[in-house]
């Protein structure tokens, strides 16, 4: 008969404690995309929460903002907010050119909401440059949809409307 003494019990307890830490694989904030092009550079006053945007979109009779998705085209094809337009990935020069041409003929007072949702807010490489681009072009009514984690978690999973590209 083999016997396992306290150290082995402690090892088991240690493993169990480690296992309890598995509650979620989401990890602490690290690898923040910082700098002028970061989503963190967008003023808090220009952020709009998902619930608020959905309310605006669902309220009849109100003028709807132009919704521009500035992330991945593939993710846009998978799911996007109804009525939104794909305007190019803000992290890439070609994307910013596409954004520029998308808004070229619009009034500088046009209400615009940018969104991406490709990855966690602090890591999004697209929104900061896109917001800066519109700001530099003179647009004065630009807001950015705050999606903390991504479009799936913070929009789709909450039951807000989405549509797919055909």
């Amino acid at each position: 008969m083999k016997r396992t003494r306290i150290p082995q019990l402690a090892m088991t307890a240690g493993l169990a404690a480690l296992a309890l830490l598995f509650g979620s694989l989401h990890c602490p904030a690290q690898y923040i995309v910082s700098g002028p092009g970061s989503a963190l550079s967008i003023p808090q006053s220009q952020l709009i929460q998902p619930e608020a945007l959905n309310h605006v979109l669902q309220t009849k009779g109100t003028e709807k903002p132009l919704l521009l998705q500035v992330g991945s085209h593939l993710l846009f094809d998978e799911a996007h907010i109804p009525g939104s337009v794909y305007a190019g990935a803000g992290s890439q020069p070609t994307g910013l050119q596409q954004l520029q041409s998308t808004v070229a003929t619009l009034s500088k007072k046009k209400a615009i909401v940018l969104y991406c949702g490709c990855c966690p807010w602090n890591r999004c490489p697209n929104l900061g440059p896109a917001f800066k681009q519109l700001h530099d072009m003179g647009f004065t009514n630009v807001n950015v949809l705050y999606l903390a984690d991504n479009l799936g978690t913070d929009w789709v999973a909450k039951g807000y409307p989405v549509e797919r590209s055909h």
Binding site: L18, L21, F22, L25, H26, C27, P28, A29, Q30, Y31, C119, P120, R123, D149, N150, G152, T153
Partner: peptide, 16 residues
């Protein structure tokens, strides 16, 4: 056996 979304603690993932 697991789905990891967003930033993930790689230490925990390795243990898994």
């Amino acid at each position: 056996q697991a789905k990891c979304q967003g930033e993930t603690d790689l230490g925990k993932m390795e243990i898994r």
